[in-house]
């Protein structure tokens, strides 16, 4: 296995004034792999991702990017190696698709007016193509569907030319077709040598596309391993409670997680 590009070591974090805290958590991701971070709402997935991205500073523990302490990086330097797409990235201003993708070049351009150079235009075109959004380049962001919008935002992060991608629930509110398209793009990127960490609620997408899974529960890491070792009825029952059944995918052999009838009845009973 390759040496990890991003390595988070025993980080803890408590939001100011809050009781909840992330207990010592670690993760690492190497070039050419997708690491899925799973867990129920409030388990600390997004917090862990923000700490890995340097958006939050850990109370304890350290983050290493390409073998160097993240604290030693300037913001622009970090952005050249690490791309971060938060949840609900939305602008009040109606930029065009190519303007949004061009914003990904910020770290590579100087200060001030920062006009694009020929190479930047090449990178923008490549990012649009990789995310299958080149046909949308002159459209306004407000005129796109949720799936198109998400791919455009992904293109803007790819335009940073990062080695590591951190994505926080990029498939939320997308239909199955767009979810599959987005994860297929991620698979392509990984094959080109990128390391991807993706926070998601979709256990089946994680099973299908990720090499490893990190499962969180109540602010601490419950377990880590391959989809086959993590996505079991026993482990999921411990984290999500009863109500899931795990079967094997008929053609791919990876675990598929289904809600059980008893869970549905329980739901009907409570509603």
């Amino acid at each position: 296995m390759n040496a990890p590009l991003l390595s988070v070591e025993k980080v803890t974090y408590r939001y100011p004034g809050a009781e909840w805290q992330l207990l010592p958590a670690s993760l690492s991701v190497a070039p050419g792999e997708i690491l899925a971070v799973l867990g129920p709402n409030g388990s600390g997935k997004s917090t862990l991702l923000k700490l890995a991205a340097g958006v939050l500073k850990p109370d304890e523990g350290r983050v290493f990017l390409a073998g160097r302490d993240l604290k030693l990086f300037k913001r622009r330097e970090t952005a050249k190696v690490l791309g971060y797409l938060p949840q609900d990235a939305e602008s009040r201003f109606d930029y065009s698709v190519e303007e949004v993708v061009a914003m990904g070049r910020f770290a590579h351009l100087g200060g001030g007016l920062a006009f694009l150079r020929a190479y930047d235009l090449e990178v923008i075109a490549r990012s649009l193509k990789q995310t299958e959004t080149d046909g949308l380049r002159y459209r306004r962001l407000s005129r796109l569907s949720g799936g198109e919008r998400q791919r455009v935002l992904l293109a803007s992060v790819i335009a940073q030319e990062p080695q590591v991608l951190l994505l926080d629930e990029p498939t939320t509110a997308l239909d199955v077709h767009h979810q599959m398209r987005l994860f297929s793009i991620l698979t392509d990127l990984v094959q080109r040598g990128l390391a991807v960490v993706v926070v998601t609620h979709d256990l089946n997408l994680a099973s299908l596309f990720s090499r490893r899974i990190l499962l969180l529960k109540e602010g601490c890491i419950h377990c880590e391993g391959t989809p086959k070792t993590v996505l079991t009825k026993k482990v999921l029952g411990e984290v999500y409670g009863d109500g899931v059944e795990v079967i094997s995918h008929p053609t791919l052999g990876c675990p598929v997680v289904l809600p059980t009838i008893s869970a549905l009845r329980q739901k009907e009973g409570t509603s």
């Binding site: 340097g54 958006v55 913001r75 201003f93």
Partner: peptide, 13 residues
């Protein structure tokens, strides 16, 4: 304009 977190991720102080 895309929010503080997105801006940080892009390299803005």
């Amino acid at each position: 304009s895309f929010g503080e977190e997105m801006a940080m991720g892009r390299g803005v102080d």
